[in-house]
Amino acid sequence: MNVELEVTAGQWIAVCGPAELTPGRGVAVLLPDGGQAAVFADRGGRTYAIGNRDPFTGAYVLSRGLVGSTGNGGSPFVASPLLKQRFDLATGACLDDPDPGRSVPVYATRRGQARP
């Protein structure tokens, strides 16, 4: 089952095959509008997608952060590889800064049949 991401309501794109997504890590995805998303899998195989842009530095690097869940009520987060701020993978909120301007967009994901 490929991993799919919902770009806008009802518009799904294929991201990658299941083996390309290592649990605990992410991959970067180029969106049809030229934007970028970061897609992750946790150790249970559940997938998540957020914007790839780190709002603290402007760099498109969140896909290269490490996934964790401890200290967030068991919900997964990713820590930016640049300055280590953490972002909730389910909500996009920055766990280290309540300013909504520091949150990142969230995309729905699913396991689907579309070709990547």
């Binding site: 605990g24 946790d42 150790r43 964790g68 869940s69 401890t70 200290g71 068991g74 820590a79 280590k84």
Partner: peptide, 23 residues
């Protein structure tokens, strides 16, 4: 995973750990 599940804090076992202890 084995280290976390067998020797981690109870609330962290079975989870995804964190960016501090993984590396």
């Amino acid at each position: 995973r084995r280290l976390l599940d067998e020797h981690g804090r109870p609330e962290a076992r079975g989870g995804d750990g964190c960016e501090t202890c993984k590396p």
